[in-house]
Nucleic acid binder design. Structure first.
Lengths: 213, 213
DNA sequence: GTCTATAGAGTGATAGAC
DNA sequence: GTCTATCACTCTATAGAC
């Protein structure tokens, strides 16, 4: 209203929320292009149309910047999976997700690297991972409970324990796959899900019966 | 034998193999004490009784240094588990190992962080992880085969696939545990092993029989 | 509260002599 | 193989304008 936007590349006094968004977007962009090791506060500032100290005003350290990129990536991912809250075709959805992972190696690397760093007390990513683990475990646990109620999963399982195991398998398999993509990530993941939740027992029972006894 | 060691702190012209060892040991020491973020080439040099360029002569970059620490840690670990090659008390051994993990958080963090980095092509840790994954998967697969032959595990399983899943679960659970050590790592790990290998089926069968049919 | 300008401490890494 | 000397660059901190 006061002054018309000057035709500078570095927009003057962009509202803070926009700035934060622009900065986070810039970080994610660099992560995808060059990997997180290629992120420098200088380039982030450049791409966000700001100066370095401005960047560090919004995110007090480089690690905070990286966490912001992870958060932003999560949001984009969440938008992508919008509709499917049904547990119905779960194995299919798993497989689909595993496929999408293929294209986002840069983010996965960042996720893995930060997951390691984040476990040191006081690290900026600590809260992010604590929340993320807790939320994911809770979500998976609820899903397993529903499957138990539906008779798909055996009632003896501890849903939280299985949820933890499944999350762990997921993260670990991604790592292995990134290191050597010679196996079908979706397939191995779905198989692990079936075994961990005991949903392979129907088929297993037959082969078991003919094996022992 | 030839010349007695001179009583200088910075040994002059220590044989190269010794230098490498001293440097790797210094890195591991710092990792355990302060975490891998606390590793600086300067301090490594100091602890190894050498100068910085000497350190970087043997290990051309900081990442190489970190890999060296990981390798050295593996060796120490291997010595510790020397005797137990029997598959007999495997769950017990798993549990014991999971306990020992508790005391080596620094190394685990480094492992996790590097595992993420290592997936970028050309990274110094790439080879280490490729070898380690391959060796671990092969070792676990052999173990599962033996258990299949012994009638402990169902014959329908793909040993390599299960081995992958188990390794993944292991790595992932360590991460979760480091982020929030509120659960019993050994217990969850053993349970995952049982389910992934189908060795919980005997017990499961009973509960299954009374559940369905 | 939001940003710009400037500056500094510390890092990994290199060139080249011994 | 080991060292001295040096560099380029990154993250971060401070002072102050709007």
């Amino acid at each position: 209203m006061t002054t018309p936007a000057r035709s500078r590349q570095r927009g003057p006094y962009a509202r803070s929320a926009e700035r934060r968004e622009a900065i986070a977007a810039a970080v994610l962009e660099i992560v995808v292009e060059k990997g997180h090791r290629g992120v420098t506060t200088a380039e982030v500032a450049e791409r966000a149309g700001a100066r370095e100290p401005t960047v560090l005003y919004h995110f007090p350290s480089k690690d905070h910047l990286l966490v912001a990129a992870l958060r932003r990536s999560d949001e984009e991912q969440a938008e992508a999976d919008d509709g499917g809250d049904s547990d119905a075709g779960l194995p299919e959805r798993l497989r689909a997700f595993a496929d999408s992972v293929t294209r986002r190696a840069g983010v996965l690397r960042l996720y893995a690297a930060l997951a390691g760093e984040a476990t040191t007390p006081g690290h900026p990513a600590q809260e992010y991972f604590a929340q993320r683990y807790a939320a994911t475990v809770a979500r998976h646990a609820r899903m397993i409970e529903r499957r138990q109620e539906a008779g798909l999963a055996p009632p003896g399982l501890d849903p939280v324990q299985v949820a933890r195991q499944f999350l762990a398998t997921w993260d670990g398999l991604q790592l292995q796959w990134l290191a050597d993509p010679s196996f079908d990530l979706g397939e191995v993941l779905v198989a692990a899900f079936r075994r961990l939740t005991g949903e392979d027992r129907r088929e297993a029972r037959a082969s078991l019966t003919e094996t022992e006894s």
